[in-house]
Each structure stands twice: as structure tokens, then as C-alpha cells.
Design a binder for these strands. Sequence first.
DNA 1: CTCAGATCATGACATATATCATACTGATTT
DNA 2: AAATCAGTATGATATATGTCATGATCTGAG
Lengths: 231, 231
Amino acid sequence: MYAENKITSCANCARCWNNFRNLTEEELELINKNRYEATFKPSEIIIKQSSPASNAIFIISGLAKVYMEGYSGKNLILNLAEHSTLLAGPGAHVNARYTYSVAAITQVQACFINFDTIRKVISANPGFASGFIEDLSEKSFRLHQKILNLTQKKMHGRLAEALLYFADNIFRSDEFEMVLSRQELGEMTNMAKESVVRIIGEFENENIIHATPRSVKILDREKLLVISEKG
Amino acid sequence: MYAENKITSCANCARCWNNFRNLTEEELELINKNRYEATFKPSEIIIKQSSPASNAIFIISGLAKVYMEGYSGKNLILNLAEHSTLLAGPGAHVNARYTYSVAAITQVQACFINFDTIRKVISANPGFASGFIEDLSEKSFRLHQKILNLTQKKMHGRLAEALLYFADNIFRSDEFEMVLSRQELGEMTNMAKESVVRIIGEFENENIIHATPRSVKILDREKLLVISEKG
DNA sequence: CTCAGATCATGACATATATCATACTGATTT
DNA sequence: AAATCAGTATGATATATGTCATGATCTGAG
């Protein structure tokens, strides 16, 4: 996840975006020619919400947090993003502004590709366009789930779900590094950092997890699942 | 909004979906041939969440509510939909299930078009595909806004915003029929029906609105805007 | 007209959750 | 080792909001 080798060409890079597989060699070369690579240090901002959305950004390696800057400076972390992820936000096709911000958590390697180029390829290649539709749909689908989670579950359920999200979707292990602070965990589950601390404490007392400030180990996945589902 | 004339052909129907303007005559005729029209009475279900998403559904006339069925039977109304709206949900491209339910509020006229046909046209017509991407993006964009509203604003702000949504997006007037019950207004703003009643009462006392069970008149739009924005 | 069922309204109360104050811990610097 | 600083932890308290109970009002069916 922390690799940092320069990409020689899109043609031999498998870490960018699955949908690029739908491109012809020529199209892929067009993308490759219009590609700018950049590396971000932890906590650096990759995308700034509401700035002009000129580029589609693809994560090659590393981990980033995708978040919205809300009212009175309160953030809402939507999800984490790793390699093979297109970052742009729906705003690119609505008001040409980024809808969310993205910041590096670990060191992040990313490719920037101008939207003009992307649009050109969308118009030329129906398979790619369909892939784009699928990507948008999947993100929208997840957001629909998230809106339900955030509005209808109580704190315990939301935190349990966040922990399972890390285990299942990011680290694929029940024992993982906690890359977010308590504060950020709160921004992800829409609760105060103090509440995060308290509930993590409760989960520990009930032997559901073992947690340190920078690590989590899920001890009783069944219970955690029940808490996550029952809200 | 309550018209009910049979559509003779997509070719001379302007109430369906703007994106159909990107089609050639032949493509439009293909759509027209694969079109099924139906009329729904108030409260009838047009789309049932998590049932197989076989058709894209377009509202020709009438008003419908789009909502998610959440945990323990609690609904979340996402928005209202009127003519020129594509209803399908991102699930159509993810798990082939409808992501949300849709129910008629007034009498609703709708066209059903099989997704196979839609996909055929998406593959054949890049302009249409782009229109599809724009539609998906706009809906996702609105959902991003909504998730912030629901999670970061207090009840007063959420209700003020809902009222402005009706005035600005649905009825285009500061005086309008209240088509939702207090209960439904609560499902839309994520609060208990009693809280809706109470806050509407407060808004009345402060001469911000005049409300009856089935109507609303905005008296002080400025104040309502401030409440909506300040949360 | 009258009855029944829904919706609306309102007050008393319960509870989830945020906020505030304060202290603790661990890392980094001096 | 002392000092700083950010993150973590915990208790006391405040507040937003939901829940429950009850009555008023409206609406449609017979």
C-alpha cells in the first residue's frame, strides 16, 4: 500500500482504475500522454472541495480520506480511498467543482488526468462510458446506504459499522492499524470525539474489541455485526 | 401537473426526460416501441425498493415521493419527483435492484422502459450516455448536499430547508399545497412528527409562515433562509 | 347525521448525545 | 530531565430530540 515506484505507462499499470481496461491501445496511450503524476505526504490535501474540477484523479498507492466540509467547519468523512479509485465527485458533471475534499492519510501516489481527455474517451468508447456509469452508480449506491446509516442508527451502531468497514473494506483483516484519530472517527460516524472514546471503551469492556489509540483488533465479530445491524 | 392524456409517441412528448433529445429518430422510435404506460392513483407504489430493477421509469405527470425504507420500518423521503424525471436508482447498475421506493402522491402517469433497451441506446449514442452520466451525477450531487443537511443541521434548519424545497423546486411559489402529512414531513427531515408540528407552530408564532394541515404560505422568506442556512 | 379512523396538536417526560472542564498519556523538543 | 504539544480519556452537566399519553379536529363511509 505504500509502494512508490514511478509508473512508466498506463499500459503496464494495474493500479489505476479497472475501467481503463475497456480502452483501446490508442485511447490508453492518449490517457497516458495526458497524465500527470504526483506524490502527497500524509495530511496533504489532494482535492479541495468547491475548487474547479479540472482533473479526474486516480489513486495509485496509499490511503486517503474523502470528506465533505460542512457547516461551521464541521467535516463529514464519507469513506477512505485506496488504489484503483477514481476521485472526482459528481460536481465535475454538475457545476465543474469538486463536491468533496480528499486528503492523504499515508503517502499517496496519484495520477491527474484532465476531464477534457476523459470526456473525449467517454464519447468515443461506449464500454468506457458504461464503466463510468457503473462507477458513478456504485458510489451513489454507497451514499444511499450511508445516509440511512447516519440518520437511522444510534451511535453504537454507527461506530460498529465503521470498525467493520475498516476490517472488511480497507484492511481485509480483523486486526488493523487505526489510521484515523478519535476526532476523525467522529467525523466519519457523525458524533463527538468524546462519544467515540466512550463507546470504544464500552466495546472493550464487553470484550468486543481491543483498541489502542493507533490499532484495533476485533475480538467478537458476531456481536459487532449485531450492534451494527440493530442500530 | 394532473394532466392525463395518453402519449401517442415519444416523438411528440416533451414531458419525459430531457436526455431523450439526444436520440436519433430511429433510437427514439426504438424507445417508443418498448414503452409501457401506466397510471397510478395517490398512495400507490410505483417502485418497490429492492425488487428487481428491470425498467427505467419516467414520470409524465403528477407528483411522487422517492423514499428509502430503512431500519425497523422507518422511512427516509429523499425527494419529490415530477414530470421529466428518470426514476431507477443507482442499484440498477450495481445489483440490479431498486435502491429506493417511489409512491404516487397525486395521480401519476409514468412510462416504463426496459433497461435492456436503455443500455442498447447508451452503447450506441455517446451523447445519450453523457446525458445519463449527467443525470446520475446531479442526483448524486443532491444526495451529497442532503447528507450534510441531515447530519449537520438542527431540526429548525432542516424543516426550513424542506419548506424552501417545496416552494423553490416543486411549486415555484411561496404559497403552496402541503402534499405531505406531518409524519411524512418528518420522514423527509429525519425527525418525529411531533417535532414537525411543534416547529411549524413556532414558525407560525414568529410570523415566518402561515400553515394549515394541507397548505403553507411563506411570509418571511428571508428569515426562513437564515434559519435554513444557520442550521 | 353520526360514527370510526386518520391526522393534527400539545404537554409531560425520557434519553441520546453534545459540550465543557480537566486530567492523563505519549511523543518530541530543549 | 523538564517542557511542550497533540491526542486520549473521563466525569458533570446541558440540550436537542424522541416517546408517550391525551384530546381536538377533520374526513369519508354508511
